[in-house]
Simulated assay, not measured.
Amino acid sequence: MSLPSRSLQLRDSHTKRKTIINTLKDKQVRMTTLTHRARRTEVGKNSEKKVESEEDTNQDRSPDNEDSGDSKDIRLTLMEEVLLLGLKDKEGYTSFWNDCISSGLRGGILIELAMRGRIYLEPPTMRKKRLLDRKVLLKSDSPTGDVLLDETLKHIKATEPTETVQTWIELLTGETWNPFKLQYQLRNVRERIAKNLVEKGILTTEKQNFLLFDMTTHPVTNTTEKQRLVKKLQDSVLERWVNDPQRMDKRTLALLVLAHSSDVLENVFSSLTDDKYDVAMNRAKDLVELDPEVEGTKHSATEMIWAVLAAFNKS
């Protein structure tokens, strides 16, 4: 073969090799670009998911949805917490000298229904500005899952004309002179609440003999849950004291008001040292001695709490 023809062949072979190499490079570049693009898309999606997750978390942690207890704690109603604070741990019954707890439990029912969005106070008018003059109105009659709450809700729905907070506490307690309204009395409230606590594993049921009669008692078995509740209230007036009821957790505020009205607040602070006991009692006293009419106008979410306190202050 002549030299020119061989040179041509070598040139053609070199050109083909260069073309193949360039083609492979182009494919590699396109694949790399696609890979980066896919990664960017995936990162973008993950970022969007992360933002959505953070928004959901922030919404769950908003003041309206915030729960003062740990998610692993047993969920108790305000009535159950008040009764638990009033019970003697070993004996399983409340003090025989306590004649306030029955009314306190009924007040707790009204506050619990308001917090669950079932009832509310009618808006203030020129003629009815005071909390004790405003009627309790029905917002929703959907069941709550609690027998006492649903029974009260049924009474409120069926009552015409509507009644005030103070009247409802009297009707639910049975302290009324109207024989036609005795049907609204909630019977065996303490026993029914105690049975709920037994079902939740906090109390147990026993029979005790008191010479002339036998009485069913409910000693505390889950002392951890009761101590958690006591510690929460103690901290609310000590380490976590904010000196402003509008900044307090609504359920904690309600429980302090109900514990005072039910005459069981002494049980909450009895385990404190003398110095801390004095501070806690003085702060709790200052709280419940605030003017309910003034505090009730500051936030509609706490109106029912202050209305219940106003009813107990008047009675």
Rank of each mutant, 00 (worst) to 15 (best):
T57E: 10
L238A: 03
L149W: 10
Q227K: 14
A284I: 10
S68L: 15
S142R: 10
T176K: 08
L171G: 03
D56Y: 01
G92T: 00
F96A: 01
T217D: 07
V294W: 06
D73R: 09
E266R: 03
K232W: 09
A310P: 01
R190C: 04
L197K: 12
V43A: 12
I101T: 03
G174A: 10
R190W: 04
K16H: 14
L309K: 03
A194K: 01
P245F: 08
I156Q: 07
E80I: 05
D89A: 14
K298Y: 01
E42D: 12
V136C: 01
R11V: 01
D12A: 14
Q59R: 15
L197D: 11
S5Y: 09
E175K: 15
M215Y: 06
L238P: 00
E206S: 01
Q208R: 10
V257T: 11
D64W: 13
K72T: 08
L83I: 10
W241A: 02
H155A: 14
F180R: 15
M281Y: 07
K49W: 13
K195M: 13
I119P: 03
K50F: 14
L233R: 00
K200A: 04
N58V: 12
L229P: 00
E170N: 12
L186F: 06
A254V: 08
M304N: 02
N46L: 15
N222V: 06
M304L: 11
W97E: 03
R130L: 12
S47C: 05
L265P: 03
V294Y: 13
D263V: 02
V29G: 02
G145C: 06
R106K: 10
D274S: 13
R127Q: 13
D99Q: 03
T217M: 03
H218Y: 15
V257R: 05
K154W: 13
S140L: 07
L255R: 08
A114E: 06
S262T: 01
S142G: 08
Q185G: 06
P245M: 08
F210L: 11
L290D: 04
M115C: 04
G92V: 01
T77D: 09
S68W: 15
R61N: 02
